[in-house]
Measured scan of single mutants.
Amino acid sequence: MTVRVDGVDYEFSSLEEAVRFALKMAKSKGAEVQLHNGTFHVE
């Protein structure tokens, strides 16, 4: 599972870890999280 934040990809071994990271980053940026074909994008 890959989480992309500001064009940088972060790899996670589990969906749970990836979701937690994506939500944490989105909250800190006041951004939204989108899921596309198994890849999260924080914008």
Rank of each mutant, 00 (worst) to 15 (best):
Q34S: 13
T39E: 13
V19G: 01
V42Q: 07
K29H: 14
S28T: 11
F40G: 12
E17A: 09
M1I: 14
E32P: 06
E16F: 09
Y10P: 00
T39G: 12
V3G: 00
V3I: 05
S13M: 08
S13R: 09
H41F: 14
T39K: 14
L23F: 08
T39F: 12
V3C: 07
D6A: 06
R4V: 09
E17R: 03
S13V: 07
D9V: 10
A26L: 08
V42I: 08
V3A: 01
N37V: 06
F12T: 00
G38P: 10
R20Y: 08
V3L: 02
E32S: 14
V8M: 07
Y10T: 01
Y10A: 00
A18C: 13
G38Q: 04
Y10V: 02
V19K: 09
M1L: 09
H36F: 12
V3N: 00
V5W: 06
M25V: 09
E17C: 15
T39W: 12
K29M: 14
E43I: 15
F21Y: 04
G7H: 03
A18N: 00
Y10S: 00
E32F: 13
R20V: 07
A18R: 00
E43Q: 10
G7D: 05
K27D: 09
V19L: 14
T39V: 15
K29G: 08
E16N: 05
E11V: 13
H36M: 11
T2E: 01
L15A: 08
G38M: 08
A31C: 14
H36Q: 07
K27A: 12
Q34W: 15
F40C: 15
S13A: 12
S28D: 12
N37C: 15
V5I: 09
V8Q: 07
F40I: 15
R20C: 15
F12K: 00
N37L: 10
V33C: 15
H36L: 13
V19D: 02
N37E: 11
F40L: 15
K27I: 12
F21E: 03
E17I: 02
L15H: 08
Y10F: 07
R4M: 06
G38T: 04
L35N: 04
V33L: 05
F40W: 10
R20M: 09
L23K: 11
A18Q: 00
T39R: 14
D9C: 15
E32M: 13
D6Y: 06
S14W: 02
K29D: 06
V3E: 00
S14E: 03
R20H: 07
E16L: 10
D9P: 05
K27M: 11
S28H: 11
V33M: 05
V5Q: 01
A26N: 03
K29W: 08
A18H: 00
V19F: 14
N37W: 04
L23H: 13
E43G: 14
T39Y: 13
V5L: 05
V8Y: 06
S28G: 08
D6T: 02
N37H: 07
R4E: 04
K27N: 10
G38L: 10
K29N: 09
